[in-house]
Amino acid sequence: MADLRLVLVTPEKTLFDKPVASIKVPMFDGSAGIYPGRAPLVGRLGVGELTLKGGDGASDSYFIEGGFIQIKGEQVSVLTNAATPAEKISRTAAAEELAAAKAEKATTDDAMEAVANKIDRARKLVKMATAE
């Protein structure tokens, strides 16, 4: 079986550059799984959880905020504006963000969409949050 190598880059630094067994990424329209030997792909990412499984079965997850994915042979590059490791997401901060998003009132269509996006993002954060 061919290997898979995940490179996770943000504008500030390269967070992750290691071989992995499989990856689950949040695409713009839902999550997608990637196993070795996938066809080349360039895609847009959404907001959500990126999970990777190492060769030894250990899994790791990051909260990523949009960006792009490029799959080329065994190399998977994920470009994102910001990525936070799951263990660093604070439960209280996430809950606060959700409450704030819910409290916001929208009057136009654009604002409605923006608020819906915010609520969605906050819900995903709350779901992933593990730290206090």
């Binding site: 695409m27 713009f28 329209d29 066809a39 080349p40 792909l41 360039v42 895609g43 847009r44 792009f68």
Partner: peptide, 11 residues
């Protein structure tokens, strides 16, 4: 030969 999701234009 890449597969584009959603489309090259949108990316």
């Amino acid at each position: 030969d890449y597969e584009f999701q959603p489309s090259p234009q949108e990316i």
